[in-house]
Design a protein around this nucleic acid. Structure first.
Lengths: 365, 365
DNA sequence: CTGAAAGCGCTTACAG
DNA sequence: CTGAAAGCGCTTACAG
């Protein structure tokens, strides 16, 4: 049977169209089967698979039809070996927020659907001894076709340098444009934070505090910056004791809030760098018998699901995370298909302030 | 240069040990390089890579040393092509809870670390027209070495049948033992739910309600069953009007709670099938000006992060999700390495009731 | 315990 | 526009 197939004369039984599809697909057909069926060389089939322009239209149509009939799909492993590049896209992340990671992942998967690419997941730790070495070994070994970088991995210039060196295509998701547009999804966190500032100022708050994320996250810097600028636009200042750095975690947010709420005068509003920390602020406020929003207004960032699970519902700045992941992966796909990325490529994403029940005019006004 | 390398006599410059490691690794060495360096055939190197017992100890040590020196790692694509099996493990899920998915993923990645396998992610929709066909195409195309199935995909017998048919190794994470132990991680949800029942009964509650997840999830069935049995052990019954099915979502939980809280007599305690729905119960209770736990005790399931973000902190049944993922992946790895899975293989996982502030004795006792 | 030959299913480089 | 040859980096099947 094997020999017969090899000689290319006799079709294996399972390839006969007389047999139902489920039976036929028992053994997957190869490029050789398709070539034989179409009466062309496998190179021509290969040209069709890879959308080469150098195939007579008639031939292309015929081959495509045969491919369809036989449910043929080229073997990613074999292509990868010959191409010296796998059909794998990596998602590299060190972000601690599951919702953020999952939403991005979902967006990436949406973009990849229907493409020949699969998504490989890679968490990382920027502080680890072998961070760069491990990343490089992983990417080279798997010969990834590209990677999507989530913050703060996306902000690591050593990592980017390495990717450039090994010529691995990448897209970075970050708060500001750190790279060429075709390699970026820019989230403009500062704009969202400025909205939050104007919202609080507009409600009449004067003593306003901020809990920022860790310095190692560009988003933390941008949110603080946007917030400060927003306040400045309203004639307000973020005074040093009211300006605290935390770690984007629930616990660190609670600790920072406890410190802030013991200040005199006590802030009437706190802008937390993300929703997790805002949840910590809620606990700190409750422990002090402070009522939100009567005694304290709180704004978060991310608009993660917990924002609408908390009580009162949290006012928060929303980022279209799912869309960001999709955009990032689409940019990778586009560069794969075309040599020159289109100029109209969308790169920017605008955060939106979602006003809920955790913000109100200050008590004492 | 290429020819010289091919003839196997002259080493490429970059392989010289005189050059620093970063330079040396510019071009990855292949099994041929190692064979030449060791003065053996590539087949022997292959045997060492694959831990074949048929290699002289001395030869093995020498080859391993040369592999180490050259930072050689076999090409997964090439191995995959020859093996007719990739070095990819799939995680297949349809679970709506991001935290659940991420934790499992983290556990799987932990288990895979240091192995030659990478993790490929695949969400799915059991109700989709082409569910089985798509899954099969995906697995066959990628020639996955195995898949980890999260609930409720893990409970889909059509999917399992297909996996058996195409001989794809799998591990299922599910509430009960649906398969041979080496293919299962069993979470015993019913035991956790029974604990919840005894806890509420012990506090003196008599009118107790339950909001279960969707029938399509075995976990929903098991949690309800365990809860009912736990109540029965305390001489209590889950009466039909107090027994509602929802969808494991926040909104469905809130709707179910609204219905339950309008009953007369009003339940003094609600056991929600997961934390998301418990969060919905909180909102329903608040809208009715009911205080938790004074007027209503609430128990959740999962002990997800929101359980400790809610106010009051939610009593919930904890599952060691991260460990479940790790166990599932380890079972796959073990089957890859050994023909016969060890008998001492751990399969069971025990849920633990975490008592917080959302449960108390009923008001009217 | 070891190796030479053939093959996995594709693509590249070259020729026409 | 099309194809025959060689190759990608491994393993299987066979022989010794």
């Amino acid at each position: 049977m094997k020999t017969k197939t090899k000689t290319g004369v006799i079709l294996p039984v399972h390839s006969s169209l007389a047999v139902p599809a489920t039976e036929r697909s028992r053994k997957k057909s190869t490029i050789n089967d398709i070539a034989r069926l179409a009466g062309v060389s496998k190179k021509t089939v290969s040209r069709v698979i890879n959308d080469s322009p150098f195939v007579k239209e008639e031939t292309r149509i015929k081959i495509k039809e045969i491919i369809r009939e036989n449910g043929f799909a080229p073997d990613p492993q074999a292509r990868g070996l010959a191409f010296r590049r796998s059909f794998l896209i990596g998602m590299i992340y060190n972000n601690p927020t599951p919702q953020y990671v999952i939403n991005n992942m979902q967006g990436i998967l949406d973009a990849l659907r229907g493409s020949p690419f699969e998504l490989v997941i890679r968490p990382c730790n920027r502080d680890a001894q072998n961070f760069l070495h491990d990343m490089r070994a992983f990417i080279e070994r798997q010969k990834l076709s590209g990677v999507v970088l989530l913050p703060s991995a996306s902000e690591d210039e050593r990592l980017i340098g390495m990717l450039r060196e090994i010529e691995c295509p990448y897209t970075r998701i970050a708060a500001v444009g750190l790279d060429a547009p075709e390699k970026m999804v820019v989230t403009h966190d500062s704009a969202g934070a400025a909205d939050a500032a104007r919202h609080l100022a507009g409600l009449g708050h004067k003593v306003i505090a901020h809990i920022s994320g860790p310095k190692t996250f560009r988003s933390a810097f941008e949110r603080r910056k946007g917030f400060t600028e927003g306040l400045a636009g309203c004639g307000l200042k973020l005074l040093s004791p009211y300006d605290r750095e935390a770690a984007y975690t629930f616990e660190s947010g609670q600790a920072a809030a406890e410190a802030l709420l013991s200040l005199s005068p006590r802030p009437t509003a706190i802008f937390a760098g993300n929703d997790e920390m805002a949840a910590g602020v809620y606990v700190a406020a409750r422990n002090l018998r402070l009522e939100i929003p009567k005694d304290l207004s709180v704004v978060g960032f991310d608009d993660s699901p917990i924002a609408s699970r908390m009580w009162p519902l949290l006012t928060s700045v929303r980022l279209p995370i799912h869309e960001m992941g999709r955009m990032a992966a689409e940019k990778l796909l586009r560069r794969w298909k075309e040599k020159t990325p289109p100029a109209d490529d969308k790169t920017e994403v605008i955060p939106a302030l979602i006003i809920r029940n955790s913000t109100a005019a200050p008590n004492n006004v």
